[in-house]
């Protein structure tokens, strides 16, 4: 093998090694960390898996927010217009959290069908609705008509 070819071979091998490492890591990480989105109706009808990390979004139901008196635990209900699901969260809520606001929660669904959130997201803009929530609410509205 000429030195030039040898050099090329080494470079190509390095490239192959580098990219397979990256692809391996990527696939592994993607498999572990994809969170599917579910709407309230899907959860209420039992379509959503239990104890799997997922995203759940909907409108905060008016008058459903209950606060614990001695800790930061808070419970509220999220709705997509048809069904409601209870969410429990411990911690500080984002500034834009309020009743009748579109909210995205991340966490797991427990055996009782209560969504145990470890993260609650509200968007910067109060008029902004996460596309997932907007779509699931639109679907409900169409189904009702």
């Amino acid at each position: 093998m000429t030195p030039k070819r040898k050099q090329r071979l080494i470079i190509i091998l390095a490239l192959v090694f580098g990219s397979s490492l990256a692809i391996g890591l990527t696939l592994f990480a993607l498999g572990e960390n994809i969170n599917l989105f579910y709407s309230a109706s899907q959860i209420a009808s039992g379509d959503a898996p239990k104890n799997t990390r997922m995203r759940f979004g909907g409108m905060v139901v008016k008058g459903s927010v209950e606060r614990s008196t001695d800790s930061l635990e808070i419970a509220f209900k999220l709705s997509d217009g048809a069904s409601q699901v209870k969410v429990v969260f411990t911690g500080i809520l984002p500034d834009l959290f309020r009743e009748e606001q579109g909210i995205m929660a991340e966490g797991r669904l427990d055996e009782q069908g209560v969504f145990q959130a470890d993260e609650v997201l509200a968007k910067h803009d109060e008029n902004y609705m996460p596309p997932e929530i907007a779509e699931s609410m639109k679907k409900k509205a169409e189904a009702i008509q």
Binding site: L21, T26, L30, I34, F37
Partner: peptide, 28 residues
């Protein structure tokens, strides 16, 4: 872009969280 692609192909709404990026980014 993965969530976008998957959504465009009708694979459902997903999101890819920080653990993915950390797992891939930090070793490289």
């Amino acid at each position: 872009l993965y969530p976008l692609l998957l959504d465009a192909l009708g694979g459902g709404k997903i999101s890819v969280g920080p653990p993915y990026f950390n797992a891939v980014f930090v070793p490289i």
